[in-house]
Simulated assay, not measured.
Amino acid sequence: MVIVSPLPRPVYLISSSLSIASGVLILFVAGLTVADVIQRSVFGKSILGTMEISTLVLVAIAFLGLASAEIDGRHVSVNLLESTLRPSIRQVLCVIRLLLILGIGATLVWGLVHSLTASIARSETTNGILKISIWPAKLTLLTSFSLYFFVAAFKSYNEFNFLRLQKVKE
């Protein structure tokens, strides 16, 4: 797909940074897991809080790369049917897709903002031994999804404009 106008440079920088952070966190969780296994094998007991830390970090790992994957088109998609349609029908589908992205994105982001503020207000923590604050994981979700929905909406809008320009040339 040809993009009519490029994404703003800060979006590329932020999504790349979040993707790199996800990779670093994978290494961290892997190291923590190896250390925990060695600790259990040698000393017979686990490192305290390993499960709580790993769970929260895995949330970040799972979602930090969303926007980067959307920018590069590395997500799973099937557009066999859409690619066979006329540009005018594809334009209508772009509008529908954009409205769905905006509606779902706004609803999800609003819910995540509410969840984050409630978590901070209640000083919500994990139930394990360490009592780790949950709000950083919720902030990660909010940031990741907000950036993802921005990129998805931007790409859908660009596709609409591309099809409109293509239709004008015909």
Score class of each variant (00 low, 15 high):
102 L>W: 03
73 G>Y: 00
80 L>V: 02
65 G>D: 01
54 S>W: 01
54 S>Y: 04
79 N>C: 07
15 S>A: 15
63 F>D: 03
30 A>W: 09
66 L>M: 05
162 F>A: 10
145 F>G: 05
155 K>A: 02
145 F>H: 03
141 L>M: 14
9 R>S: 11
151 V>M: 06
135 W>M: 03
101 I>M: 08
100 L>I: 13
39 Q>D: 04
165 L>N: 10
40 R>Q: 12
23 G>L: 05
136 P>R: 05
65 G>S: 11
75 H>T: 03
136 P>D: 03
34 V>Q: 09
79 N>K: 05
12 Y>V: 02
147 L>Y: 01
34 V>M: 14
106 A>S: 14
89 I>W: 13
10 P>N: 08
77 S>P: 05
81 L>E: 10
62 A>R: 04
79 N>Q: 05
28 F>M: 04
82 E>H: 09
123 S>G: 11
140 T>H: 05
169 K>D: 05
106 A>R: 01
123 S>Y: 10
66 L>Y: 02
139 L>M: 03
27 L>G: 15
155 K>Q: 07
3 I>W: 10
5 S>F: 15
162 F>E: 06
69 A>P: 00
147 L>P: 02
99 L>F: 11
109 V>Q: 10
82 E>T: 07
114 H>R: 08
154 F>V: 02
56 L>R: 00
54 S>T: 07
38 I>F: 13
111 G>Q: 10
143 T>C: 13
121 A>C: 01
103 G>H: 03
96 I>G: 12
2 V>M: 14
41 S>C: 06
24 V>I: 15
107 T>R: 12
97 R>K: 10
106 A>L: 13
148 Y>C: 08
44 G>N: 06
164 R>M: 07
24 V>G: 06
53 I>G: 04
168 V>R: 15
90 R>H: 03
18 L>A: 13
16 S>L: 14
20 I>F: 13
11 V>I: 15
144 S>Y: 08
31 G>N: 07
49 G>R: 00
